[in-house]
Structure formats: C-alpha cells, structure tokens
Nucleic acid binder design. Structure first.
Lengths: 215, 215
DNA sequence: ACCTGAACACCGTTCAAGT
DNA sequence: ACCTGAACACCGTTCAAGT
C-alpha cells in the first residue's frame, strides 16, 4: 500500500535497522522512556518490542528477562542522579553550601522523574543482587553523599559523630521527603505546597540536626 | 474417594463455608497474609481464591478488582501502624519521650512488615483517589504525628516553626530511614547494623534539628 | 549472530448460567 | 444473593526455524 514515490529508506522504523548491534541501546532508551512516561508497571517486554518495530522475542537476545530491563533503567537513573549531584557540589566552593545544593538536587530529581525514582529505590525482589552493575551505581551514589559529609567535617563545624552516622541521618531526611512527595503523601499538610519551600524546610533542619554552623 | 468414616463437615475448606457473608473478610485476611509473606506482586486474584477454595470469579462479588484488594490490605496496614504509634505515645507521660517512641515504633513497624510498608507508601497509579477509606486511614496517621508535635510544642521547647513544618521534617527523617532499611539500600554503610542503633542515630538528630531540649 | 512465529503457562476481568 | 465455568485479551518466556 505504499504510495508511489514513498521512500522506504527514510521511514522511521526500517525493518532491518537494528541488525548491526544498535538494538540493545535502542531497547534501553525505549525502556527508560516508558518508565518515565508511563511508570514501571507499563514497562513490558512486548511494549518495548512494539515501539521498536521488532518481535518481542528479539528482546531476549539482548536482555535476560524483564527484570534485566528494569535493572538497566534503574542503573541509568542512578548515574543520572549522581551526575546531577556531582554538578551541585562542583559549583560550590563552600562545602556546606555544596552539600546543601546536593540535597536539594536529590529532591528535585525525584520530583522531575517520579516513576524512575520509585523504580530505583524499590528493591523489587532481589533485583540488586542479580545485577551487580545496578548495585555498583547505587553504591557510587551513597559514596557521593558520604564524601560531601566528610568535606563539611574538614571545612565546617559539625556536631560529633562518624561520617557514616551523619550520612545516614542526612540521607534519611532527604530521601524521606523525596519519597513522600513522589508518592503524594503530603496532601493534608498545610505547609507551603511548592517544592522549593518544602525542600528548604527539611534541608535547613537537617543542618541544624547536624549541628552545622553556617560558613 | 472419601474414606469410610470421613466426616465432610470437618474438612478444612467445606465447599459452602462461605455462603453466609464471611467470604469478604476471609479474602481480606488471605490478601494481607500473601502481601506480608510473599509481597504485593504475588497478591493475585487467583491465588487468593485458591487459598480459600473458591473460584476466582467469586472474588469479584466482594471486591471491585485487584486494586481494590491492594487498597484493603494497605488500609489495614495504616490502621495497624496508627495503633502501634498510639500505644507508644499513650505509654509515655513526657511528650518528648512519647514522640520519640512514636518515631521508633514507625521504623520498627516498617522493618517487621516490609512488604506491607512498601505497599502502603506506593501511590500505585492513583489507588488513593479511588479508595477514600484508604486515604482516610493515611490521613489519620499523619494527624497522629502532627498531634505529637503539638504536644511537644506546648510542653517542651522546640525551635520556631509551625507544627506542619516540624511534622514535615520529622516524618521525612523517620520515613526515609524506614524506607532505606526496608529497600535494603544501606548495605555499604559501616554504621552499626542493628535496627535500634540506626533508628536512634536518626531520631536523636531529628530532635536536635527540632531544637528540642530534653525534658 | 540475530531475528521471527508459534506455543505454553499464567494473569485480570467479564458474563451467562446455575443454586 | 452468591458462586461457577468458560471465554477473552494480555502478559513473560522458550524454542525450533529462518536469514
């Protein structure tokens, strides 16, 4: 049913465009897009295949199973988040300010990518242990927080405590706020409803909890 | 194939044991048990029916759909958690101590019922708005935290701030720690690995963040 | 090496039919 | 009023077969 003059080479999904190894990355991109746009429940082997114009069995030549797909998306998410946080600290000379911006970045990321954030922090039946790359990406994120704490300890004044104790506390506060916002649990709260206000309320009190003195 | 002498009345799942209105509550109990034992992904209309010795179509005479089942389990979870927290504050004269125990109860509950806790705080595609009872149970939980904050403000000394601002901060910290533990994100942390130590590290710093002075 | 079609077991949901 | 059997559309996963 092609119209005369149609040019098969330029159609969007040529039947054999993925015979040279780029199908794997195509799957990853589509999978991430589906998670962000529709949520991880809608990330289906068959949906990914359909968007790429490929049989659903083809997916299994590049990914073990659906869980492997989810792990790949989550891993990309951790890398993205780590990059955002990296930038936040890099842009601030003052360690305390950098640390503050890092926390705010974390919360903003969660709000901007709620479905992805939800997937990243759902253990999802031992996805972590089966996918070392995912575990590694998550570890790097934690390491970034820990380094920011240590930077504050060497430069500023924090109350007594090991870096890991402070890290546990900060991460809990920031992650908790991000989770509660993303999961829409704060409807009954009369506190200002905009993200930045809420984030600053929590982050500033975390600073007080750390015994931080403004630099 | 009944043995002679077998008494059909005493078999565990009589075919018509649920014809008098107790099937609904049976479904609720089984659904909660499956979530707690196997996780909400395993909560299946068909699995519930099978455990009750009933056809899977029968479930739909008592619950709208699978989401309705999940909402019922989550609602029970919120009521359980609220009861545990209620007891924690009731057992303490001192408002600050009661508030502290309330936070610890929240974290302990999450650790004891990880699958249930995960379900409760997953928005799960607008489950909340479709199930007012669930939303109500969640609201009562938040109200309990808020009241404990107010009790501390009237009795003890907290730093300046509206009750809702303090509530937002406390809840974020406690919920974040609970979530990170339940989702097993703290593996790389060298902080003491037992629950009580971790909970106290976070809760004590929250108190500092509130500017609380020990009663 | 990479992809496809067909098949299988498993879901949620609906509905006519039974008591 | 309550329950069942059968049917449908949708999954994930596997595998022989094609290029």
């Amino acid at each position: 049913m092609l119209k005369i003059g149609a040019v098969p080479r330029t159609r969007k999904k040529p039947k054999d465009a993925y015979h040279h190894g780029d199908l794997r990355s195509g799957i990853g991109e589509v999978a991430s897009a589906i998670v962000n746009q529709q949520g991880s429940a809608e990330l289906t082997v068959r949906a990914v295949a359909q968007r790429l114009g490929v049989s659903h069995a083809a997916i299994y030549h590049h990914f073990e199973d659906r869980a492997d797909l989810l792990a790949a998306v989550a891993e990309r998410g951790f890398d993205q988040l780590a990059a955002v946080m990296e930038r936040a600290t890099a842009e601030n000379e003052n360690a305390l300010l950098g640390f503050r911006e890092q926390g705010l970045s974390y919360i903003r990321f969660a709000v901007q990518h709620p479905n992805l954030f939800g997937l990243m922090f759902r253990s999802e039946a031992g996805l972590r242990s089966e996918h070392p790359n995912l575990a590694g990406a998550a570890d790097r994120l934690l390491e970034r927080i820990r380094r920011a704490v240590v930077a504050c300890q060497t430069e500023g004044i924090l109350m007594p405590g090991t870096p890991d104790e402070h890290t546990l506390f900060c991460w809990s506060g920031v992650h908790g706020l991000a989770s509660l916002i993303v999961e829409q649990q704060l409807g009954q709260l009369t506190v200002p409803s905009d993200l930045e206000s809420r984030a600053q309320i929590v982050v500033d009190r975390i600073f007080t909890g750390l015994g931080a003195r403004a630099g």
